[in-house]
Amino acid sequence: MANDMPDPVQFCSHVAKLHKLSTSPNNCFGFHVVTNQGKFPQAVEWDPSWQSFFTKMLKHSIKIDSQENGTIDALSEVSSRLIDSVIPLLLGPLESDGRTVKPCLIHGDLWDGNIGTDRKTGTIYIFDAGAYYAHSELELGMWRCQRHRFVDQEVYLREYLKNAGISEPIEMFDDRNRLYCIYMNIWASAHHTGGIDRDMAYKDILFLVNKYAPSSDNVLP
């Protein structure tokens, strides 16, 4: 297999098809066995609410990162405000005013290193999954991370959204994407002590806190 970036049309249509055709066995978010993000187990116990499920996943990832890299007071403070004040404002609207979120089977760790293209046939394969049923847009959080090649190639995001659409409220999509990227970067920080991933997560947390739950003590420069 080649590890070149996959054909965006074929790749994104397959990812969107996985999300659209998959069906949770109990209409809940989670998975029937514990799956891993890298070497760490994820918090994938079944939950009927996307906001509740994602909040528990994020809290778990922050706990693991703190165990691996130590606790920083400033990060702990803004992370608490993200969880308590921002997440309800960002994810709550997905499940209000008659809206619902479909639990979709996602790969869970879909970066370019987990994708290969058959050199002879052009068939695309994805592997090394940390799968569970989630909001389909969570899959795209990984594509925002600066360490991956997806971030410089917006054609993949455009192709995916052309096939799958955007959840309502549409105007909150980019902020949801930033929130989902935070989750992915915190896991990367837990795996790579001293890397930039925690700093990237911190900056994105500050951005969302300043936008949705501002105070005078954490304004971005």
Rank of each mutant, 00 (worst) to 15 (best):
D4N: 13
Q10N: 14
F11M: 07
C12M: 12
S13K: 12
H14D: 06
H14R: 14
V15M: 06
L18E: 06
H19Y: 00
L21M: 14
T23G: 04
C28D: 06
F29C: 00
G30F: 01
H32W: 05
V33G: 05
V33W: 08
V34T: 15
N36V: 06
Q37K: 11
G38M: 01
K39E: 04
P41Y: 05
Q42Y: 02
A43N: 08
W46Q: 09
P48R: 06
Q51D: 09
S52Y: 02
F53N: 03
F54M: 05
F54H: 03
F54R: 01
K56Y: 09
K59W: 02
S61C: 12
S61M: 15
S66L: 07
Q67L: 14
E68T: 05
N69I: 02
N69R: 00
D73P: 08
L75M: 12
V78P: 01
S79I: 02
R81Q: 12
R81H: 11
L82M: 04
V86F: 07
P88A: 04
L89D: 07
L89Y: 00
L91G: 01
G92K: 03
G92Q: 07
P93M: 07
L94H: 09
D97Q: 12
R99K: 14
R99T: 07
T100I: 03
V101P: 07
P103G: 11
C104P: 02
I106V: 15
H107G: 13
H107D: 04
D109M: 06
D109N: 10
L110H: 05
W111F: 14
I115A: 11
G116Q: 14
T117D: 12
T117I: 14
T117Y: 08
T117L: 14
D118I: 07
D118G: 09
I124W: 06
I124D: 10
Y125K: 15
Y125L: 10
Y125V: 08
I126F: 14
I126R: 11
F127M: 13
D128K: 09
Y133L: 02
A134K: 04
H135T: 02
L138W: 07
L138S: 00
L138I: 08
G141V: 00
G141D: 00
R144D: 03
Q146S: 15
H148T: 15
F150C: 04
Q153H: 15
E154F: 10
Y156L: 07
L157H: 12
L157A: 10
L157W: 04
E159W: 04
Y160M: 12
Y160E: 05
L161T: 03
L161E: 08
A164W: 03
E168G: 09
I170G: 04
E171R: 00
M172H: 12
F173G: 11
N177A: 02
R178G: 06
R178M: 10
L179Q: 02
C181I: 10
Y183A: 08
Y183L: 13
M184D: 05
I186G: 03
S189T: 02
S189L: 09
A190P: 02
H191C: 10
G194S: 06
G194H: 01
G194E: 11
D197C: 12
R198T: 09
R198E: 08
R198Q: 10
D199G: 13
Y202T: 14
Y202L: 10
K203G: 12
D204A: 15
I205V: 15
I205L: 11
F207I: 08
V209P: 05
K211N: 02
K211C: 04
Y212M: 05
A213Q: 03
P214F: 13
S215Q: 08
S216G: 09
V219H: 11
V219A: 15
P221I: 14
P221C: 13
